[in-house]
Write a protein that binds this DNA or RNA. Sequence first.
DNA 1: GAGATATTGTTTCGGCCATAACAATCTCGG
DNA 2: CCGAGATTGTTATGGCCGAAACAATATCTC
Lengths: 174, 174
Amino acid sequence: MTDSQAGPPDLEYAAYARERLAAMPPPADPDAFALAYHLLQLAYLLVTDLETRIHRPRGWTLPGFRLMFKLWLLGPAQPVRLAELSAMSRSAVTNAVNTLERGGLVERRPVPGDGRAVVIALTGAGEKAVREAFAEQARREGEWFAPLDEAERERLTGLLIRILRERPALGSAR
Amino acid sequence: MTDSQAGPPDLEYAAYARERLAAMPPPADPDAFALAYHLLQLAYLLVTDLETRIHRPRGWTLPGFRLMFKLWLLGPAQPVRLAELSAMSRSAVTNAVNTLERGGLVERRPVPGDGRAVVIALTGAGEKAVREAFAEQARREGEWFAPLDEAERERLTGLLIRILRERPALGSAR
DNA sequence: GAGATATTGTTTCGGCCATAACAATCTCGG
DNA sequence: CCGAGATTGTTATGGCCGAAACAATATCTC
């Protein structure tokens, strides 16, 4: 793993790992490894970048923004609905809403017909916050994807959607 | 956002959000949004799936496995090197090593020439653990990417690498 | 050599997330 | 009606993560 190409260390590592895996017997799968690695690495770098450059300086977080963005598009919604839209747990929604509520960005409202349920709604401050952060984030995403032309972006998105549509069944069974 | 297509809720939401963004003025960018959304969603689902199906049942975690996998390929290494290979913070490495060390999977060794430095090395149990989990994970990654043929996988990986190579400068400046 | 500076690893703090257990409430079959 | 079962949201508990502050050590400069 020489540094002769002077690429980023994570990409150098990935190339080296792929080579090593190519010399191993199945079930080692160098191509699947490379795909998973670069996918996760890009997602990690993008998340970290958006978080540190846009949301943290404003005193918020990326997960909080994503939740508020959903409320902005969909209007007030129950935690259970927000959880299934994001494919995340209800408790994660509870935690995120707690943080946002402390900041005065969202509020919980009781549901008339159902004593268990709660509806989460943006406050005025939350609506302003999500509009401002959205503009910044859209700009930054544009910078990240600038290396690809329009056709390539579309092709990349299409491939990702194919995998998401055919996603393997979840659950812990083998 | 009707559920007429009966697709997964997260994909339905993404399609709806893209439509809504298409009706907004710049800097709203529906294509960049869709790309970022599907990229992050797929990464999240893949991470969660590998974690819950493979690593948690064995008593470990995916981040722990990724660190051990690096040690497996590279041999003993210093935390600072592991951190830059993963583009993550040194404190995250410290935490991960603490967890792995409690489980007897890695050990810290002093560095003869340098009183500050430490080298992280796999133990025998750690080496066995990483070999077993690697086989499982490679199989599961293969299932995730099965919807794409070989050429499509390669194209997808290539597009991801293009973005990673040209990644925008980090840092908090605007 | 001695002091200023840099590097390494750790600690603290707060937020994110899942799982499991729980209380409150609703629904539905008999 | 009424009790079993399902649903909703919350609360522990524990791991992950970054930023910032810190102590120990190394290096560089004069």
